[in-house]
Design a protein around this nucleic acid. Structure first.
Lengths: 138, 138
DNA sequence: GATATTGTATCAATGTATTAATACAATTGT
DNA sequence: ACAATTGTATTAATACATTGATACAATATC
């Protein structure tokens, strides 16, 4: 059951729709949700997560704006097959900004270049393994 | 003049104290501000950036809470020499979380593993060069 | 065609974040 | 001692974000 992948913490202080967005993004990036897969209807998921349907709808619609999902009235919400809307250069810049954040934080936390590189390699491999395994076959 | 390193965009939507925090963190990580260096007094910087002194004070005090700065009433605010307050494992986890964010975003934006690795190497080198150069000698 | 199912839009309620005005407290320097 | 300089604390004004209640619109299903 798809919706069991998602779980919201009502007391974390992190907005509910943001928690859901992150979980959907992670599920897609990790191959748990694949292009064409259908997400639960907003009302259904709202009941299971005990939130207002609008909260689910907001997460879905923002992910649609970002090019990750596609919603159609009356049909449902699906994982998009196509590539993102942004151009190659824009995507590069966006990822580069996130990388620079990592570097600033790592240096301020006094991680050595070696520690940082090892951590990077480790996480990169963890994700590549997930993708190669084709996780999310149900 | 130290304060000329900072510049706030009043119309960006990003909170002013957050903009300043980021710039201080980047300056410290990049060696532009070094341990022991004094930051401008809250009032002085407030005038130059045309904001309320409290806004500067908030940025400073949050950075103190994070272990990057050290403020003393009557004396001023300085870049801390010592390592951060967090333990080795906590720091690792924090950086790992940021790395995972990069990976999720990169895969969702359909960057290849090669593109991503190259981008990482490029940014890492850019920062290492900055640090080796000992930038910020004035 | 009628009904159910789905996403969408509008509006209101509430809380929280941001910034500012102002006063307080500790240290420095004369 | 005193005045100037510094960070700190309190409070308030304002705007914004978040969530929910409810109604609307398009598609699917029978």
């Amino acid at each position: 059951m798809v919706s069991s992948w998602f779980h919201l913490n009502h007391r974390s202080g992190v907005p509910l729709y943001l928690q859901l967005k992150e979980q959907v993004k992670t599920a897609v990036a990790g191959g748990v949700l694949k292009p064409g897969d259908r997400l639960p209807p907003v009302r259904e998921l709202a009941i299971q997560l005990t939130v207002n349907p609008n909260t689910i709808a907001r997460a879905y619609s923002e992910l649609e704006r970002d090019g990750l999902l596609s919603s159609e009235q009356g049909r449902g919400t699906f994982v998009r097959a196509a590539e993102p809307l942004l151009g190659a250069e824009e995507r590069r810049i966006q990822v580069q900004g996130l990388i620079d954040k990592v570097l600033v934080e790592a240096f301020n936390l006094r991680l050595t270049a070696k520690e940082l590189s090892e951590l990077w390699e480790q996480r990169l491999q963890a994700w590549e393994v997930r993708l190669q395994r084709g996780e999310g076959e149900d």
